[in-house]
Lab assay of single mutants.
Amino acid sequence: MQAFVKTLTGKTITLEVEPSDTIENVKAKIQDKEGIPPDQQRLIFAGKQLEDGRTLSDYNIQKESTLHLVLR
């Protein structure tokens, strides 16, 4: 499924993900596309910070959801 990641600069990245993907996995995909190390990434969805060990389905993130990427 497709999900979108919006950065603070307003850029939107499109990712191909599965509901079973972990947040860690998603961060690795963002690193592949953008070169941002996962340890600098914080992903926010519905106002919550997403934890590495959880999956997209844990957070009820469905296709075409938009996550927000904040860098630390």
Rank of each mutant, 00 (worst) to 15 (best):
E16W: 15
A3G: 03
T66C: 07
I44W: 15
T12I: 15
Q2C: 09
H68Q: 10
V17P: 01
Q41T: 04
Y59K: 01
N25G: 09
Q31P: 01
N60S: 08
D32P: 02
A46Q: 15
R54F: 14
Q40R: 13
T9I: 07
A46G: 12
T22R: 08
D58K: 03
Q49D: 15
I30G: 00
D39I: 10
L69R: 00
E24T: 08
K11L: 10
S65D: 12
Q49E: 15
L15P: 00
T55R: 11
T14E: 09
P37K: 07
L8V: 13
P37A: 09
H68L: 15
D39G: 11
L15H: 00
D21F: 07
R72G: 10
E34I: 15
I36M: 05
L56S: 00
T7I: 12
I13Q: 01
I44L: 12
I30P: 00
R42H: 12
F4K: 07
L56E: 00
V70P: 01
Q49L: 15
R42Y: 13
G53N: 12
L8H: 14
P37R: 09
V5A: 03
K33T: 08
Y59T: 01
K11E: 08
G35K: 06
K29A: 06
G10I: 02
A3H: 02
Q31S: 11
Q2L: 15
L71G: 06
V17F: 05
D21G: 03
D52S: 06
V5W: 02
G10Y: 04
T12S: 06
L43F: 03
E24Q: 13
Q41M: 14
E51M: 11
D58Q: 08
E24N: 08
K6G: 03
R42M: 15
G53F: 11
P19L: 11
G53Q: 11
I13R: 01
I44S: 10
D32W: 10
E16P: 04
S57Y: 10
I13G: 00
I30S: 00
I23S: 02
K48P: 01
K33E: 07
L67T: 02
N60H: 09
I61V: 09
L69N: 00
A28W: 12
I30N: 01
A46L: 12
K63C: 07
Q31G: 07
K6E: 07
K27I: 03
V5R: 01
Q40C: 11
T55D: 03
A28Q: 13
M1S: 04
N25R: 14
T22S: 08
K63D: 15
E64P: 04
E18F: 14
L50A: 02
T9L: 10
K27G: 01
G47D: 06
K6Q: 11
E34V: 15
L50D: 00
R54H: 13
N25Q: 14
K27Q: 02
N25P: 00
F45Q: 02
V17L: 10
Y59G: 01
E51P: 03
R54W: 11
S20V: 05
Q40M: 12
Q41N: 02
V26N: 00
R72N: 12
F4S: 05
K33S: 11
S20P: 03
T7P: 04
G10M: 04
G10N: 05
L67C: 01
E18Q: 13
D52G: 06
E34T: 15
L50Q: 01
D32T: 11
D52Q: 05
E24K: 13
H68G: 05
D58M: 06
D32Q: 14
H68S: 07
I61Q: 02
A3C: 15
E64Y: 13
L71R: 08
V17E: 00
L69D: 00
P37I: 05
I36G: 02
I61D: 03
K63E: 12
S20W: 14
L69A: 01
G35P: 03
L71C: 07
P37W: 06
G35W: 03
Q62T: 14
E24A: 15
F45K: 03
G10P: 02
E24C: 08
L71E: 07
K29L: 09
E34S: 14
L67W: 03
K29G: 02
S65N: 08
Q62N: 11
S65Y: 08
T12H: 06
Y59W: 02
R72C: 11
I13A: 02
V17A: 03
I13L: 09
L15W: 01
S65V: 13
L71P: 09
S20A: 09
I23Q: 01
A3V: 15
E24H: 11
D21Q: 04
E16M: 14
T12C: 11
I23E: 01
K63G: 15
S65W: 06
D39Q: 12
M1F: 15
N60I: 06
I23V: 10
T14R: 10
Q41L: 06
T22D: 03
R54S: 07
H68I: 15
T12D: 03
L69W: 01
T14A: 09
T7W: 12
L71N: 06
Q62W: 10
K48V: 14
A28P: 00
Q62M: 12
F45G: 02
L15T: 01
G47V: 02
E18D: 12
M1G: 03
V26Y: 01
G47P: 01
N60P: 04
I44G: 03
V70N: 05
Q62F: 11
D39W: 14
T9M: 11
R42F: 14
T7Y: 13
T12W: 11
I13T: 03
L67H: 01
V70Q: 10
T22L: 11
D21Y: 07
P38F: 13
Q41F: 14
Q40I: 12
D52R: 04
Q31A: 13
G53W: 13
P37F: 05
E51W: 06
P37L: 07
R42S: 12
L69V: 05
G35M: 05
G35Q: 06
S20M: 11
K27Y: 04
N60Y: 06
V5Q: 01
K6L: 12
F45R: 03
P37Y: 06
E18T: 14
K27W: 03
E64Q: 10
P19E: 08
T14M: 12
P37S: 09
I44F: 15
L69G: 00
I61M: 06
L15D: 00
Q49W: 15
N25Y: 11
T55C: 06
F45N: 02
T66N: 05
Q40F: 09
I36W: 14
L43Y: 02
A46C: 10
E18V: 13
I44P: 00
L43N: 00
S57A: 14
K33C: 07
R54P: 03
D52P: 06
D52T: 05
A28H: 12
P38Y: 11
L15M: 05
T9Q: 12
F4P: 02
K33N: 05
L43Q: 00
F45Y: 14
D21I: 05
T22M: 07
E34W: 15
V17H: 01
E64W: 13
Q31H: 14
L69E: 00
L50N: 00
K6N: 06
I61N: 02
Q2I: 15
A28I: 14
T55Y: 06
V70L: 14
S57M: 12
S20N: 12
L56W: 04
T9E: 12
S65K: 07
I44Y: 15
L67F: 09
Q31Y: 15
K27E: 01
L43I: 09
D39E: 13
D58V: 04
F4N: 05
L69T: 01
L50R: 00
H68W: 15
A28F: 13
R72S: 13
K63V: 08
L50Y: 01
I30V: 05
P38L: 13
G10D: 04
H68D: 07
M1I: 10
R42L: 15
E16L: 14
N60L: 08
P19I: 08
P38C: 09
H68M: 13
